[in-house]
Computed example of a mutant assay.
Amino acid sequence: MLTRPEDIRSARIGHGATAVLNVRTGRWVWLDEDSRRIWDAALAQRLPELVQEVAGTGLPVERAQQVVAGIVTELTEQGLLSQAPHPGRPRRRRFTSWRTA
């Protein structure tokens, strides 16, 4: 299941564009209308339905799957999507060990 990382903030800024900020890194990403639509579908677990919608515009289903999967990969690489931990497993905590001399 794909989720939105906690350190991601977004705002629609008009003309089909969305500004996305990773508050941890300070990095901005700009999404066009189609990328935003795919991002929203991934977060809502609706990617198969979106592929069918895209295929309904005349694009072969296989090509629609490739396009959507490619954008999901890019969004994941940009840190805008992440895999949710398995529901049966507890989340791993990250600890920093501080040592004093």
Results as ranks from 00 to 15, higher is better:
Met1Asn: 10
Thr3Met: 14
Thr3Val: 15
Pro5Trp: 12
Glu6Phe: 02
Asp7Arg: 15
Ile8Arg: 04
Ser10Lys: 10
Ser10Arg: 12
Ser10Gln: 14
Ala11Glu: 14
Ala11Phe: 15
Ala11Ile: 15
Arg12Glu: 13
Arg12Ala: 14
Ile13Lys: 11
Ile13Trp: 03
Gly14Thr: 10
His15Ala: 15
His15Pro: 01
Ala19Pro: 00
Ala19Leu: 15
Ala19Trp: 03
Val20Met: 04
Leu21Ala: 11
Asn22Lys: 08
Val23Ile: 15
Thr25Glu: 11
Thr25Gly: 02
Thr25Asn: 06
Thr25Asp: 08
Gly26Leu: 04
Gly26Val: 06
Trp28Gln: 10
Trp30Asp: 09
Trp30Pro: 00
Trp30Tyr: 13
Leu31Met: 12
Leu31Pro: 04
Leu31Gln: 11
Asp32His: 07
Asp32Tyr: 10
Glu33Trp: 00
Asp34Pro: 03
Asp34Val: 10
Ser35Pro: 00
Ser35Gly: 14
Ser35Met: 12
Ser35Tyr: 01
Ser35Glu: 14
Arg37Cys: 09
Arg37His: 11
Ile38Gln: 05
Ile38Val: 15
Trp39His: 13
Trp39Asp: 03
Asp40Met: 07
Ala41Cys: 07
Leu43Lys: 09
Leu43Asn: 07
Ala44Tyr: 13
Ala44His: 15
Ala44Val: 04
Ala44Met: 12
Gln45Val: 11
Gln45Met: 06
Glu49Cys: 04
Val51Leu: 04
Val51Arg: 13
Val51Cys: 08
Val51Ile: 15
Gln52Cys: 08
Gln52Lys: 14
Glu53Ala: 08
Glu53Ser: 03
Val54His: 05
Val54Glu: 07
Ala55Glu: 03
Gly56Ala: 08
Thr57Val: 01
Gly58His: 02
Leu59Glu: 02
Pro60Tyr: 04
Pro60Leu: 01
Glu62Lys: 12
Glu62Arg: 14
Arg63Thr: 12
Ala64Cys: 08
Ala64Gln: 11
Ala64Pro: 05
Val67Tyr: 09
Val67Ile: 14
Val68Asn: 04
Val68Phe: 06
Ala69Asp: 14
Ile71Cys: 07
Ile71Gln: 13
Ile71Gly: 03
Val72Ser: 02
Val72Gly: 01
Val72Tyr: 06
Val72Trp: 09
Val72Pro: 05
Thr73Arg: 12
Thr73Gln: 07
Thr73Leu: 14
Glu77Thr: 11
Gly79Met: 12
Gly79Ile: 10
Leu80Arg: 02
Leu81Asp: 02
Leu81Phe: 05
Leu81Glu: 02
Gln83Leu: 13
Pro85Glu: 06
Pro85Met: 00
His86Cys: 12
His86Glu: 12
Pro87Gly: 04
Pro87Asp: 07
Pro87Lys: 01
Gly88Met: 06
Arg89His: 11
Pro90Leu: 06
Arg92Leu: 10
Arg93Gln: 13
Phe95Ile: 15
Phe95His: 11
Phe95Asp: 03
Thr96Lys: 07
Trp98Tyr: 01
Arg99Val: 14
Thr100Asp: 08
